[in-house]
Simulated scan of single mutants.
Amino acid sequence: MEWSDLTDGAKAVLEQTRNIKNDKIQIVEFEVGFKQEVEDSDEEPISIQEEDYQSLKRFTQENEYGDKYHMARNKNIVKIILLEKGKIPDNLSEIPIFREYKNQN
């Protein structure tokens, strides 16, 4: 699966899995059903729906770029991390959540 096949919500999540500035691996947590409130009408809101989750799931299994991801879903909350060297880190709980796309309750 190629980048161009991803839904917009899936792209928004994947773009956040690596902090470009210092090249650190980051966890991104999102809620299926999230819709961003946008104050600036020029800005495109981020929406992550079930089809975005399915797109992410397929991409992480079939991507053609060689990157390996770990995704875990508990009800509607999903965490995704880009793996270094294809292995889940021993200290996964110590890796910060870099970005959250979650509805405020």
Rank of each mutant, 00 (worst) to 15 (best):
G33D: 07
N76M: 04
E50Y: 10
D5L: 06
D67A: 12
Q61C: 01
W3Y: 10
N19W: 06
V32S: 04
I27L: 03
E29N: 06
N103E: 15
V78D: 08
Q36Y: 09
P45Y: 08
I77C: 01
E62S: 13
Q36P: 11
G86V: 03
E31F: 03
N22D: 15
I25M: 13
S55M: 07
V78F: 08
Y101L: 09
I81E: 00
D5G: 06
D5A: 11
F34G: 04
E64D: 13
E39I: 09
D52M: 11
K102T: 15
M1G: 11
S93A: 14
Q49M: 15
N103W: 04
E39K: 14
F59R: 03
I80Q: 02
I81G: 00
Q36I: 11
A72I: 11
L14D: 02
G33H: 05
T60Q: 02
E44C: 10
D90P: 01
Q36M: 14
K35N: 12
D8K: 11
E62K: 13
G86K: 05
N19E: 13
R99I: 13
I27H: 00
Y69H: 03
S4V: 12
I77W: 01
E15A: 10
I95H: 03
G66I: 11
I20P: 07
I48H: 07
P96H: 02
F34V: 07
I77N: 02
G9S: 05
K79F: 00
V38N: 10
D8Y: 07
S41A: 12
V78A: 09
I88A: 01
V38Y: 04
E39S: 12
N76I: 00
F34K: 04
D40E: 08
P96E: 08
N76C: 03
Q104Y: 11
R58E: 12
N74D: 14
L6C: 01
I80L: 09
I48P: 10
Q16N: 12
L82T: 04
I27S: 01
L56I: 14
S93N: 13
E64G: 03
R99S: 09
Q26K: 13
F34P: 05
V13E: 06
S47F: 05
D40H: 05
R18S: 06
D67T: 10
L56R: 07
E31G: 07
A10D: 08
K57G: 00
G86D: 08
G33L: 07
